[in-house]
């Protein structure tokens, strides 16, 4: 791999976003708008305080999963991926380039969303805000890694969008947001233990309730899932195809 190509790839992905103002605006501000809506629905009460941080984990994961899976599918179908791999681009350059660009977007997205939740909507968070943002960025990278991986299994954009209910919604239902993970039937609780989003929500909750939160264990698990998915994603990038 080469830092030159990785950085150039990240720069190119950001250029693509820069020319697509609508996607950029949706990426950056939609989570904040949804948080405001949620706050309004619950009239800013304790329910908002309970699920607000979990949503800060969920939004970057979902939005980065969607944009990455579609962007990568476009690279595969338009022939640009083949061209890059016929050039000196390493698989890691390609994957990390996307990770870098969307990780940066996620940091901006999470900073805005955290700023709105804490500054404007008075969300109660005991731990430091930067940890909230760090966990959100890790969740976004998890979404990027999952998106890169599943794009290999979709032939069209229709298919790739269907992966969202298939891969993301079950994680949402089992992550402990609707029912605490310990209160679920044993089988579901075990499945929940194997899903990365559960740890993302746990980490957010830890930052919320604990003034000196212990998030690094959770962060390590999320990062391990992201690295594992990236490795699987790298295995789906082929220089030679039939």
């Amino acid at each position: 791999m080469s830092p030159r190509i990785t950085v150039a790839t990240a720069h190119r992905v950001l250029n693509q976003l820069r020319h697509d103002r609508r996607t950029l605006a949706l990426l950056l501000f939609m989570p904040s708008i949804l948080l405001v809506l949620l706050w309004w629905i619950y009239d800013g009460g304790p329910v908002f305080d309970r699920i607000g941080p979990a949503l800060l984990a969920l939004f970057p994961f979902i939005s980065m999963f969607l944009v990455t899976s579609i962007a990568t599918l476009r690279e595969r179908t338009s022939g640009t991926l083949e061209r890059l791999l016929a050039m000196p681009t390493g698989k890691l350059d390609f994957l990390l380039g996307y990770g870098l660009a969307f990780g940066l977007m996620a940091a901006l997205q999470a900073t805005i969303a955290a700023g709105v939740s804490i500054g404007l909507l008075d969300l109660d968070v005991a731990g430091p805000t930067w940890q909230l943002v760090t966990v959100a960025v890790l969740d976004a990278l998890l979404g990027v890694a999952l998106g890169l991986f599943v794009s290999a299994f979709a032939a069209t954009e229709f298919q790739v969008v269907q992966f969202m209910p298939a891969l993301v919604l079950p994680q949402f239902l089992l992550c402990g947001l609707l029912v605490a993970r310990d209160d679920m039937p044993a089988v579901l609780s075990a499945i929940s233990d194997a899903l990365p989003l559960s740890y993302a929500v746990d980490a957010m909750r830890e930052v919320q309730v604990n003034p000196t939160p212990e998030v690094w264990g959770y962060a390590g698990i999320i990062a391990a899932f992201a690295v594992g998915l990236l490795a699987l994603g790298a295995a789906t990038l082929r220089r030679r195809t039939a």
Partner: peptide
């Protein structure tokens, strides 16, 4: 890449090479 300019395409691929 259709969503960036001609020059940006060439700058990117030139950097890769």
């Amino acid at each position: 890449y259709r969503d960036i300019t001609v020059r940006q395409n060439l700058q990117y691929f030139a950097a890769v090479l």
